[in-house]
Design a protein around this nucleic acid. Structure first.
Length: 263
DNA sequence: GACAATGTTCGCAG
DNA sequence: GCTGCGAACATTGT
């Protein structure tokens, strides 16, 4: 689930329901072996503070305030966040809970344990340390051409490289390439200037559209690839059929007929 | 039981 | 030193 638009939807949940409330306790959930969570000391640092701001960079999420510590979260493959009234039932696979005054509770759920939570002091410094590229929604055409359009490998691998561009994952990389008519295995550096610009515009439009629905896939246009990620399904843009291949080790759905290797 | 899964990280080869 | 690739990570669901 969690690429840029999905993480943005989680950020909004925090913004709408979990800001400006004093943190009473931060508690690890059940079965927290093999998952990185803040130590007891770090959890205690959050208590008594409020989150006044929720930020996102790529797929990374931050909640904190100018004066206090920040909680940094990554959703891994299957993590999610809910903000509940404390009398609502707890779901399975909750790895961390933050109890606020109110009462209200933020829960971090992560069945597959690929996500993690840290307590940090300065989001900007951590973003720089992680060697993350600019957020995919904020990069301009020239920056995109410079960072993605020069890669010697497959254009899809370039889109997925968080050091070049932060936020695009497997689903929305496929979607952007499908809508831009570019083959995932095309060498990025071989694409025309026009094709790179088209991919940039398309990627931003795709990501923004998904954000606009709060990452509710059923509200996305029927013609999108997201609704037909299955080999053999009919393409919505030409007479072709969707094919499933591996690119850079990731499952990739595309239409061999209209997605051009030499765009 | 085997396999695939929307994430990142690490080691190796070029 | 940088870039690109494949495997590994822990667990669930099909």
């Amino acid at each position: 689930m969690p690429e840029l638009p999905e993480v943005e939807a989680l950020r909004r949940r925090i913004e709408v329901r979990a800001l400006n409330r004093t943190i009473l306790a931060v508690t690890p959930g059940n079965d927290v072996t093999h998952i990185e969570l803040p130590s007891a000391e770090e959890r205690a640092r959050l208590e008594g503070h409020q989150f006044t701001e929720a930020r996102r960079h790529g797929k990374y999420l931050f909640a904190g305030s100018a004066s206090g510590p920040w909680m940094m979260l990554h959703m891994g493959m299957a993590g999610s966040i809910r903000v509940l009234d404390t009398d609502e039932p707890q779901a399975d696979f909750i790895r961390l809970t933050v109890d606020f005054e109110g009462p209200r509770r933020l829960t971090f759920r992560d069945p597959r344990k690929f996500g993690w939570v840290r307590v940090i002091d300065d989001p900007d410094a951590v973003i720089a340390d992680h060697d993350l590229g600019p957020d995919a929604l904020s990069i301009g055409e020239a920056g995109f051409a410079d960072r993605v359009g020069t890669c010697r490998g497959a254009v899809k691998s370039a889109l997925l490289d968080q050091g070049k561009l932060a936020g695009i994952g497997n689903l929305w990389a496929d979607e952007a390439l499908y809508q831009a008519g570019i083959h995932p295995e095309a060498r990025a550096a071989d694409l025309s200037e026009e094709a790179v610009a088209r991919l940039h515009r398309t990627a931003i439009r795709v990501l923004q559209s998904v954000c606009d629905t709060d990452a509710t896939y059923s509200e996305l246009p029927d013609a999108w690839l997201i609704h037909r990620r299955e080999a053999g399904r009919a393409c919505t843009r030409c007479d072709g059929a969707i094919d499933k291949i591996k690119v850079g080790g990731r499952t990739s759905y595309h239409c061999p007929d209209h997605q051009d290797r030499a765009a």
